[in-house]
Deep mutational scan, measured.
Amino acid sequence: FEIPDDVPLPAGWEMAKTSSGQRYFLNHIDQTTTWQDPRKAMLSQM
């Protein structure tokens, strides 16, 4: 499912887009990137 862009990312995360428009996520805390939206895990725990 798609999460609306107005749902905030967890602390330390940033959303970016590739030149082709694909979204990816940067974790500044552990210096990693992922295609997986970290908000999905956050919302599934609620």
Score class of each variant (00 low, 15 high):
7 V>S: 13
23 R>W: 09
31 Q>H: 13
20 S>H: 15
6 D>K: 12
32 T>L: 11
11 A>E: 14
22 Q>F: 03
13 W>Q: 05
34 T>C: 06
33 T>M: 05
41 A>N: 05
12 G>A: 05
39 R>E: 01
3 I>R: 01
12 G>I: 01
26 L>Q: 05
13 W>L: 00
14 E>T: 12
44 S>F: 06
28 H>W: 04
19 S>D: 05
41 A>M: 15
5 D>S: 13
13 W>Y: 12
20 S>N: 14
40 K>V: 12
17 K>T: 12
5 D>N: 12
29 I>F: 05
16 A>I: 05
9 L>V: 09
34 T>E: 03
40 K>D: 13
26 L>T: 06
24 Y>R: 02
36 Q>L: 13
16 A>K: 11
22 Q>A: 13
20 S>E: 14
32 T>P: 00
34 T>H: 06
17 K>W: 10
32 T>V: 12
45 Q>C: 09
43 L>W: 10
12 G>L: 01
32 T>Y: 15
22 Q>C: 09
39 R>I: 01
43 L>R: 12
8 P>N: 04
33 T>V: 07
39 R>Q: 02
16 A>H: 07
27 N>Q: 02
24 Y>F: 07
17 K>A: 13
35 W>E: 08
36 Q>S: 10
36 Q>E: 04
19 S>A: 13
40 K>G: 12
31 Q>V: 02
44 S>T: 15
11 A>Y: 13
41 A>L: 10
19 S>R: 13
19 S>Y: 02
42 M>V: 12
31 Q>G: 08
37 D>A: 01
20 S>V: 10
28 H>N: 09
30 D>P: 01
23 R>E: 09
4 P>K: 11
18 T>C: 14
2 E>K: 15
37 D>I: 03
23 R>L: 12
11 A>P: 15
24 Y>K: 02
32 T>Q: 05
9 L>G: 02
20 S>G: 12
27 N>D: 07
3 I>Y: 12
30 D>W: 11
2 E>D: 14
7 V>W: 11
16 A>D: 07
31 Q>L: 07
43 L>D: 15
20 S>P: 04
31 Q>T: 02
6 D>Q: 12
40 K>I: 02
24 Y>I: 05
43 L>C: 12
23 R>G: 08
7 V>N: 11
5 D>V: 07
5 D>W: 05
20 S>Y: 13
33 T>N: 01
29 I>S: 11
35 W>M: 08
5 D>T: 08
1 F>A: 13
40 K>E: 05
34 T>I: 00
35 W>P: 08
5 D>R: 07
45 Q>P: 07
18 T>H: 08
39 R>T: 06
5 D>E: 07
5 D>I: 08
44 S>C: 11
17 K>E: 14
33 T>H: 13
10 P>V: 00
35 W>C: 07
9 L>C: 10
14 E>N: 05
32 T>E: 08
22 Q>H: 11
27 N>G: 00
7 V>H: 08
40 K>A: 08
9 L>M: 15
16 A>N: 09
6 D>L: 07
34 T>Y: 03
3 I>H: 05
31 Q>K: 15
30 D>V: 07
15 M>S: 12
9 L>E: 04
26 L>H: 02
